[in-house]
Computed example of a mutant assay.
Amino acid sequence: MQRGFTLIEILIAMAIFTLIGLASTGLLTTVIDSNDISEDRFAKLQLLQRAMITIERDLQQAVPRAIRYNGEKQDMVMAGGKLNGSDDDGIGFVRGGWHNPQLMLPRSTLQYVAYRLNENRLERLYSNYVDNVIGYEPKVRVLLEDIESLNIEFLAKSSNESLDEDEDLSWNESYKGTALPRAVAIEFVSKDFGKIRREFTLTTGGAS
């Protein structure tokens, strides 16, 4: 005589399978959420790496070339610290090495660039020409978002005079000089990665 399952046994089996299904769903949801978080963090890490490469390239190709400001010639080749247009520190200078194959484009290989903090965004400002006409607005590229602060320091003499090997140098919070400083340190606080500091040597092209 064959004996079937009782109603209680069926209900118990259904409850067990329901618990297994709920646990599996919860585990799958956790895995998917973790994967989304990992992908989002990896994407932000890639943005951070590209931003640092851009900053490093610009600073290591800095050249001692002054620009015209509002049509007037000046002697400063680099200015940095608390600058107008930035919510925190900023820096502006001319870089070389801007690729122009066989000089086919109507511009030089020099480019004026600047960095600033604007509404928690680290921005790179640039223009096609070193000396622009009065009223020209530079182009803006957002490198990073959710940046809480930006601090830029300069390894140079406080007097900003020409540098000799035997002179004592120190980190200064601002710089306006007719010669490039020995090094530039850029430090910012990211909401995602915390405090990040990079120091770039301008004279030897190294970075640490």
Rank of each mutant, 00 (worst) to 15 (best):
130 V>E: 02
66 A>W: 01
46 Q>P: 06
50 R>G: 07
186 I>T: 09
191 K>N: 05
177 G>N: 13
4 G>C: 01
191 K>Y: 06
64 P>W: 07
6 T>V: 02
18 T>Y: 06
49 Q>Y: 03
23 A>H: 09
31 V>K: 13
80 G>N: 09
8 I>G: 04
74 Q>N: 04
153 E>N: 10
97 G>Y: 03
135 G>L: 00
43 A>K: 10
199 E>Y: 00
158 S>C: 05
25 T>G: 07
178 T>V: 14
35 N>E: 14
95 R>M: 08
118 N>E: 15
13 A>F: 04
61 Q>K: 04
17 F>R: 01
111 Q>S: 10
3 R>L: 08
21 G>R: 02
200 F>H: 02
106 P>Q: 05
101 P>G: 11
188 F>A: 09
187 E>D: 07
205 G>E: 06
86 S>P: 02
10 I>H: 01
176 K>P: 11
69 Y>R: 11
143 L>F: 06
104 M>P: 01
146 D>V: 09
85 G>L: 05
46 Q>I: 14
7 L>A: 07
124 R>H: 11
160 N>R: 14
172 N>W: 11
32 I>S: 10
97 G>N: 01
193 F>V: 08
48 L>I: 01
179 A>E: 14
53 I>A: 14
115 Y>M: 00
84 N>A: 11
136 Y>E: 10
175 Y>T: 10
89 D>M: 13
50 R>P: 03
28 L>T: 12
67 I>G: 00
158 S>Y: 06
72 E>N: 11
105 L>K: 12
115 Y>R: 01
37 I>N: 15
13 A>V: 08
139 K>E: 06
112 Y>I: 15
77 V>A: 02
187 E>M: 11
80 G>M: 12
152 I>D: 00
166 D>W: 08
52 M>S: 12
25 T>I: 13
34 S>G: 15
185 A>S: 15
25 T>L: 13
96 G>Q: 00
53 I>M: 14
68 R>S: 12
72 E>D: 10
41 R>Y: 13
151 N>Y: 12
51 A>Y: 07
32 I>N: 12
79 A>L: 14
29 T>P: 08
42 F>Q: 15
71 G>C: 03
171 W>P: 01
200 F>T: 04
122 L>R: 04
114 A>I: 03
9 E>A: 05
23 A>R: 05
198 R>I: 04
110 L>N: 09
106 P>T: 08
180 L>Q: 13
47 L>M: 11
146 D>W: 11
74 Q>I: 06
57 R>C: 00
56 E>S: 09
44 K>I: 09
26 G>Q: 05
207 A>K: 04
46 Q>A: 15
116 R>F: 11
143 L>T: 02
189 V>P: 00
180 L>R: 13
126 Y>V: 03
89 D>T: 13
